[in-house]
């Protein structure tokens, strides 16, 4: 069975100007219980790669530069 890609708007936003992932930070990626934050290969910054979020907020609470904002996923908003 062939597979299609479908788009979805993700709840977690990373402010790329603030994110210091390029300096080696991986805090939000480390703490996420669902492992949905990854380094964006294009920008070297953290981003939400999978739309599988519990909006639980450790990523936002633990980010040393306040770069992360957790929004409520669109389906629930």
């Amino acid at each position: 069975m062939p597979i299609a890609n479908h788009h979805s708007s993700v709840p977690v936003i990373v402010d790329e100007d603030k994110c210091i992932a390029d300096k080696g930070c991986t805090v939000c990626i480390d703490v996420c219980p669902l492992d949905v934050l990854w380094i964006n290969e294009d920008t070297g910054k953290a981003h939400m790669k999978y739309d599988e979020c519990w909006y639980c907020m450790p990523c936002e609470a633990d980010c040393p530069t306040d770069a992360v904002t957790v929004n409520i996923p669109y389906l629930l908003r």
Partner: peptide
Amino acid sequence: KANVKRSGAISM
């Protein structure tokens, strides 16, 4: 499965 620092029901 996740990271013990922030895993489970009492994550926050």
